[in-house]
Design a protein around this nucleic acid. Sequence first.
DNA 1: ATTACTTAATTGACGCGTCAATCATCACCC
DNA 2: GGGTGATGATTGACGCGTCAATTAAGTAAT
Lengths: 168, 168
Amino acid sequence: MEQGGKSGRRSPTAQELGVWRAYVETSEYVRQAMAAGLHATSGISPGDYGILLALSEAEEGRLRSSVLAEGIGWERSRLSHHLGRMESRGLICRKKSDNDSRGAVVELTDEGARTFRASSAPHLRLIRQLFIDALTPEDLADLGRITGKLRNHLEAEAGTQGEAPASS
Amino acid sequence: MEQGGKSGRRSPTAQELGVWRAYVETSEYVRQAMAAGLHATSGISPGDYGILLALSEAEEGRLRSSVLAEGIGWERSRLSHHLGRMESRGLICRKKSDNDSRGAVVELTDEGARTFRASSAPHLRLIRQLFIDALTPEDLADLGRITGKLRNHLEAEAGTQGEAPASS
DNA sequence: ATTACTTAATTGACGCGTCAATCATCACCC
DNA sequence: GGGTGATGATTGACGCGTCAATTAAGTAAT
């Protein structure tokens, strides 16, 4: 490993920093606007929406908790906390799995299904209003490409974190 | 207002939705990676960093709380909570303003200044590793442009939220 | 069947963010 | 100078997210 390569050494230029800051701030802004809009129109959070969506698409509106966590890419404990809150609002319920009674099965309640149906259209409308309408199709294609590169990079990076203390 | 315009009516296509989801997930990933990296290298959060940076750049390492809030674009109460936590860790301290004793002045402690100096290089290195290194200069330019459009759009959108219930 | 290991899920503590309510001070004005 | 209202900042409640610890149930070995 030469370390003299083109990467990782010098600190970002002012321009690079500017793009970084704009990116972080804007994505935060988007996130916040989405959360606020969803809350205003449907009384749920983006997290709620993701869970309701996953359950709605599942066989019989139920999923094993670990499968759900995997499906939406959440840590177990995060999901557990969130399900607790959703359960107390009556959107889902939890039962023990039949075959393996360690496992919990999460099931959409009628109320949950209704809430999801009611939130779906506003959710899509928000995506359009906040995001799609801001950009041309070319912008969208560029953004998709760039986002993909970024994600790949981060995933690769994550693999090489505490590794190879190496010779010297 | 004709409402028959090109925007806001139909729901997003699968492609559009794909870009949306990738964007949201990736920006979340970036945010999380940055927070984790900063915590690991310097024991602070991105919020801490922003505050330390703003104070470091200020005259005598001190700012009126409202000015600081404005500078970093935070709500007052968010800042207040955060300053409370930072104060208890000894990074900053708060005093009453001399002229207007409603106002609080936030001041960098020695410890805070030291922490900021120590975190600055790792912070910049993370930006490079996580973000800049993932992208070509052209990507970065595109992303800057697109981000700008998105931000402008959101700001404009925010202006026209609860407005003009209109005739029918 | 006891011990040990692993896996599923939950819990508790704590930092973070938002909203609504509150408290203190200033500014004005009669 | 005693209301009245604006302004600066804090607080409390609550949802959200992470980490570390824990509980509970399955699996395997002896």
